[in-house]
Design a binder for these strands. Structure first.
Length: 228
DNA sequence: GGGTGATCATCG
DNA sequence: CGATGATCACCC
């Protein structure tokens, strides 16, 4: 362990960010939390974002709640991804909130989702519940941008899902829509409501939704780099 | 309420 | 037993 692992500055270039991420590979949550002076919860039941926050700290991401990328000056988004012993994702990946109103004139090119996914620093983390949180290890990070096929898939699903939203069919959307991208609830609980477009074009109140990447999509992109 | 970080837990 | 729908904590 070395204190160089915990910089107090934000990275000023993409290579620097990448080097910081790579340097974390192999360390356990216990080691990193200890050096950062962060208490470790027993599990993630009530601290679901804990690993993400820990990594933000080590990589110099501007913490907090911004609809922007984690590294706006670099145009890079940070995502931690829980994986099993084979390196396959254990969970889908939240990308951003699905906009349910104000979508006139919004295109794939101008979409929030495309911006978030144009450059992502993926940090795999052991996520199996059989491993105590403190003993889980960081994997080897990778910098990714969608290739032609991935962008095509994302765009296709995004356009299909956004069409349903704009046409007032948001409440008929299930997680089964979309090949690589899905829309699921994203809220504190099922009583939370937000405005959307109803079937007759009228305003309705509905559960807030988010865009999530399906596991097969992230599995494939991780493998694409692993096999290099 | 609407964002950030995500995983939980029930059900088919 | 994996995926869908639900939920947890914190910020402003």
């Amino acid at each position: 362990m070395h204190n160089d692992l915990l910089p107090l500055t934000i990275p000023d270039s993409e290579p620097e960010l990448y080097q910081r991420a790579i340097a974390l590979a192999g360390y356990t949550m216990k080691e990193l939390a200890s050096l950062a002076g962060m208490p470790i919860p027993e599990d993630l039941k009530r601290d679901k974002g804990w690993v993400g926050m820990l990594l933000e700290r080590y990589l110099g991401a501007s913490a907090g709640s911004k609809p922007e990328q984690d590294f706006p000056h670099l145009g890079v988004e940070l995502k931690t991804i829980p994986v099993n012993s084979k390196g396959n994702p254990l969970e889908t990946t939240f990308v951003c909130v699905a906009p349910l109103t104000g979508n006139n004139g919004i295109t794939w090119e101008s979409s929030h989702l495309r911006k978030k996914l144009c450059r992502v620093l993926w940090v795999p983390v052991e996520g199996e519940r059989s491993i105590p949180l403190a003993e889980r290890r960081i994997g080897t990070a990778l910098l990714w941008s969608p290739n032609e096929q991935e962008e095509r898939q994302l765009r296709h699903d995004w356009e299909e899902l956004m069409d349903l939203i704009v046409l007032g069919k948001v409440e008929s959307i299930t997680a089964r829509h979309g090949e690589v991208l899905q829309i699921r609830p994203k809220a504190a609980n099922s009583r939370v409501l937000t405005e959307a477009i109803g079937e007759q074009g009228q305003p309705i109140m509905t559960l807030p939704r988010g865009f999530y990447l399906k596991k097969e999509f992230t599995r494939a992109l991780l493998a694409r780099y692993f096999d290099l």
